[in-house]
Nucleic acid binder design. Sequence first.
DNA 1: CCTCCCTTGTAAATCGGTTCACTGGCAGTC
DNA 2: GACTGCCAGTGAACCGATTTACAAGGGAGG
Lengths: 350, 350
Amino acid sequence: MTKSDRPRRQKVTLQHVADAANVSKATASLALNNSTRISAPTRQRVLNAVKSLGYVYNQRAASLRTQRSYTIGLIIKDLSNPFNAELTSGAESQLADHDYSLVLATTDDDLGKQTRMIQTMLQRDVDGLILAPTASTPTSDLQRLTDYCPLVLLTPYHAGLGVDCVGMDDENGTARALEHLIQQGHRRIAFVGGFDTDLTRQRRVRSYRHSLRRHDIALDPALCIAGPVSRRGGYDAMRALLRMPAPPTAAYCYSDVIAFGVMLGLRAAGLEAGKDLALIGFDDVPEAALWHPSLTTVSNDPRGLGLNAAQLMLRRIAEPDLPLKRIITPSRLIERDTTAALTPRRCLKR
Amino acid sequence: MTKSDRPRRQKVTLQHVADAANVSKATASLALNNSTRISAPTRQRVLNAVKSLGYVYNQRAASLRTQRSYTIGLIIKDLSNPFNAELTSGAESQLADHDYSLVLATTDDDLGKQTRMIQTMLQRDVDGLILAPTASTPTSDLQRLTDYCPLVLLTPYHAGLGVDCVGMDDENGTARALEHLIQQGHRRIAFVGGFDTDLTRQRRVRSYRHSLRRHDIALDPALCIAGPVSRRGGYDAMRALLRMPAPPTAAYCYSDVIAFGVMLGLRAAGLEAGKDLALIGFDDVPEAALWHPSLTTVSNDPRGLGLNAAQLMLRRIAEPDLPLKRIITPSRLIERDTTAALTPRRCLKR
DNA sequence: CCTCCCTTGTAAATCGGTTCACTGGCAGTC
DNA sequence: GACTGCCAGTGAACCGATTTACAAGGGAGG
């Protein structure tokens, strides 16, 4: 059996509908757009023709004239990360509610690919672009992009840039995580994961140092470990930390994924998070609650992030002269087993 | 500061480029499409004009004439499910490699929403549609859809339908899971989760029964428990199973998510999977390997599924008369802790 | 009966590209 | 020198919708 058994039907256009209803193309168009200039009986004739011919409206053709594609581009780094998947899901549902479609692209955190994807989006003539910029994106590129279409950035940083931003308050989230650990008496607290080129990480590290300083805790650069954002990265970092002469009693991770790796690294040494090391992650991915022991983490509502970004984009399109907006969603610390009633004196005394 | 500080620039069209290069619109178009009919110097003039004016090609306008939008629609049930996120990721990267864009929509497994989303996709004039149909989708709808655009279904069922399909071999996966349990001596094996309206579940249940019958094991309908595909669903099902006079010694779950719930349900009763109950999930989501104890599960390579679907779609577009194709990706059983060296005699003897 | 307005509908321009049929000019051939 | 063929480029039709300016017909008012 081949597809040619049933050839694809000839496309039905508005002209065909008009012919079938015995009206002009203009009338058919107006009828479908509920113009008051068309009488009820005529409109009905058109609608009947639409139904009997199986006409589907061609948004693409219309957009040529209307300059509206009802399409929003979303460019993220990586869909495998559940955080981004949730974010995308939030954006999609918000857009769908307003009859917009989502065009999705990923960059794998690669500037070259990001540039290509932006180009593609512009060529596809999206009405707006929601972008999670890779770390190395030149500010000028983003600035210039606003010449071409409305832009919403998924990051809290470029606030002074003249671009709408939606981001999470990871500075504050970091502060809370550190406060929690310090409150429990920890003094040697590691920062684990991510690379220093990453702006997000830079901010969190800054906030981490700030918190330590506020409590007169000396900074030990050896406790700040860079590495890939993966379980493997966390695992390796933890092994390295355990080899130190004075290992930390607590660790704050760049992301939950890394924290899981840290737990595995501990386990491989016969140790357990929440017993031998206080541990806090970041993101609150669903597994965080279900892991054993459950992971204390900074929660950030990724779905809400996507939702807000989409919402902001739609408002911007509706009112281009709206004052610049920046939505920072608050972070919460979710306290779970990995920091439960754990005092530093019981940790990693080897 | 408002956006009006820097007004969006006037759109640059091919006509502007042509004027700047002192050629006709036709020549500009041909030059950009690398036609041999344009001399090198002229082509260069056009390219220079493009660069200096910041022209961006309008794919949408072109598609009106070429009847190619370089856009593929993907309709899935839910992006929060990591299985679907991976699938989407695979499809996206495959499409991006071939300069196609992905338009994404979700249905929440709701037929009405699915119908609307299909309609939207057709209006957006996608070159093809990859669809994970909700359980209740009438076959005739799918058949009719092929009149409008190339269609690839994400399901192994509708093979006789005259539609390309990409799916996983969950029948075989189920057989292997059951074989594994029966091999270990289990006789009372539960099937947990999903609703009977779900075609996928129907097939797995059929295969489950078939395996039992093959080994002359009596079917106990009470061991086949329907419920929502969520941790909660698994949790509740397990609690119910534990209340039975003769609880099962093993459970095969409709999905990993449900299996996680089952583990939590066991734990709440002071029991542990792999010790008090042999447990197998389905999907092999990343958490399955990392959960404690790690979950034995049927692996299905969701990314490969998306990749195959996209690939098949691209081939179908390139060669519409290709014979009908059906790609079934094989399932593997990943043996982990929850079924490790566990004999039924040690299970759930209360 | 004539004018004016109102209602309903239409012809034609338009959006930004592609593509086909055609042209002017130049080199090669007989 | 006339003819052929090719090269480089152009004008105009076309894709499928929207939208504007205008027209035909009918009723109201004088």
